[in-house]
């Protein structure tokens, strides 16, 4: 009985040791991976910073101004080139309602003013 227990304990010990080894090994691997990723992130960040600095240098207004003067015919905006939206002319009234099947008929219909009384049109409210 005692021997059986001893054997079981030894077995458990071996399994436990193997399991521990596995965990330890994988955690080391994970830690190395983390360190590698950290270093990579830092390298990338440094590269981004360097590129951003370079971009800012290329974007410098002084440099752009020199280039624009040399290669473009654009000029600074004059105050007279601005206008407000209120000064836009009104959109013209649509003569033909959009999507009508008979545009010419609609046009003629629109031209007829129903209020005008002529010889051929009977006055609408003739109550005299």
């Amino acid at each position: 009985m005692l021997r059986l227990i001893n054997l079981a304990v030894i077995g458990a010990l071996v399994i436990g040791a193997a399991w521990l080894y596995e965990i330890k090994y994988s955690s080391t691997r994970a830690a190395e991976h983390v360190a590698k990723l950290r270093a990579e992130i830092r390298r990338e960040r440094d590269a981004i910073a360097a590129l951003r600095a370079e971009w800012a240098r290329l974007d410098n207004p002084d440099r752009i101004q020199i280039l624009a003067r040399r290669h473009l015919t654009l000029k600074p905006v004059e105050t007279t080139q601005f206008d407000s939206l209120d000064h836009l002319p009104e959109k013209p009234v649509e003569i033909v309602p959009p999507g009508s099947a008979d545009p010419i008929g609609a046009l003629i219909e629109n031209m007829v003013d129903p209020e005008v009384v002529t010889g051929s049109v009977v006055e609408p409210e003739a109550n005299h």
Partner: peptide, 9 residues
């Protein structure tokens, strides 16, 4: 947000 000063390694 235009960069005026930055660090480069």
């Amino acid at each position: 947000g235009q960069i005026l000063a930055t660090d480069v390694r």
